[in-house]
């Protein structure tokens, strides 16, 4: 086993860590893929209300295999359920919730995040690719807080956290915080700043795998952080 696989958090641990930072009662949109894991780790005593942009607030977990309703799906087109207190609505209302700043948090995957909070997550810009954008550009433009949940590096080892994105942007200066397998990092006016390092990860290792300068965590005296 290589050292890389023993460092940091698993995907489930990343999801659990992220869920700890969501306030009780938040309205949350979880992007397709790895961000969907967050729903499995709601901290004790908290309730999050999940929005899916295809017209449901109060989305519940997937139903038993074979019990799905083809007209009750999420944005990833997977069967879901509706919790007590849920509401259905049309697409213009759904994106009024998004663009109008009514949702508290959007959690998205990333191809690249820049030190100034630019996000690229919809296209590699390859000439033969079929471009598809979905609702990502609306989410980053309108939701109050945007968290990115991603592996720190690509499968080939290239850093995803970079000085400037080389892929086409989803939004400019939109990312607030990144949850990777190696660390939690804030996007600050000075660039990426460590909030927490993953198990076994030290700052030099994190810096080596990050394509932009990483600032150390701020030291708080008296045990409180603001």
């Amino acid at each position: 086993m290589s050292q890389a696989t023993t460092l940091g958090w698993t995907r489930e641990q990343m999801a659990r860590r992220l869920a700890q930072d969501i306030a009780d009662g938040s309205y949350v949109n979880l992007g397709i893929g790895i961000p969907e894991l967050v729903a499995r780790f709601v901290p004790e005593g908290r309730t999050f209300i999940y929005h899916t942009e295809n017209g449901l607030l109060g989305m519940g977990p997937s139903p038993e295999e074979g019990a799905g309703d083809p007209e009750l799906i999420n944005a990833g087109k997977r069967h879901v359920t509706a919790n007590a207190g849920a509401a259905y609505f049309h697409h213009a209302d759904s994106f009024a919730m998004i663009r109008g700043g009514h949702l508290d948090l959007s959690v998205l995957g990333a191809m690249q995040v820049s030190a100034t909070g630019d996000l690229a997550n919809w296209s590699t810009g390859a000439p033969d690719a079929i471009p598809a954008v979905g609702g990502a550009m609306d989410l980053v433009a309108g939701v109050k807080q945007v968290f990115v949940m991603t592996q720190h590096c690509t499968k080939t080892g290239d850093p995803k956290l970079v000085e400037a994105c080389t892929y086409p942007l989803t939004g400019r200066g939109v990312v607030d915080r990144v949850y990777s397998d190696l660390a939690v990092l804030d996007v600050t006016p000075g660039g990426f700043r460590v909030v927490e390092l993953g198990p076994g990860v030290d700052l030099p290792t994190l810096q080596e795998r990050t394509g932009a300068p990483v600032l150390p965590a701020e030291v708080h005296h008296g045990g409180t952080s603001s």
Binding site: E53, H90, H91, A92, S94, F95, I98, R99, D118, P131, A132, V133, G134, G135, A136, M137, D138, A141, G142, P168, L169, T170, G171, R172, G173
Partner: peptide, 30 residues
Amino acid sequence: LVPQGTLAERIRAGGAGVPAFFTPTAVGTP
């Protein structure tokens, strides 16, 4: 290719007799 919320709002506007509108979605992108 149109961002999903822009597609929805373009249709809503079209149906409501609004010829155009300004949106923050896609600013700074291709």
